[in-house]
Amino acid sequence: MRAVRGLLVALGVGCGLWGVWLMRDFTREQLTSEAFWLAGGVVLHDAVLAPVVVGIGYAASRVLPAHWRSATATAFVVWGTLTVAFLPVLSGQGGKPGNDTILGKPYVLSWVVLTLVLAAYAGVAALLRRRQARSSDMKTLHGSGS
């Protein structure tokens, strides 16, 4: 295990250095832009996205009725991660002038539908869970009565 770990780390450092070597002739302007994009994602995640998600999770765990929590969490994970994944096509940027074979779908509409479908999923799952909880309560009630 020690040898495998050492090998992985050594190989990793080698790959990383090769990557840096491939940048040796990049201009200062290119490197600055690259550094901005390298650091930008980390800052955006750690300082904005993650705290917001933690805050939403904290609030949801206190506000939502018990049978809603798990279903909402599942729907939120799917909705949030897919929204991030689809941000480029939702941004309205990109494409090529005079070329309607690229970005030719109603992405925002699809995103609204996706949001509604996931909300509906959360609602149905929550109701099922409540019914389940009630029927098991009833069983306990009958069990204690007999």
Partner: peptide
């Protein structure tokens, strides 16, 4: 950057 990413991943797994 792909080489940096895969390198950092190998270090992380190690």
């Amino acid at each position: 950057v792909a080489w940096v990413a895969i390198g950092a991943l190998l270090v992380h797994i190690g």
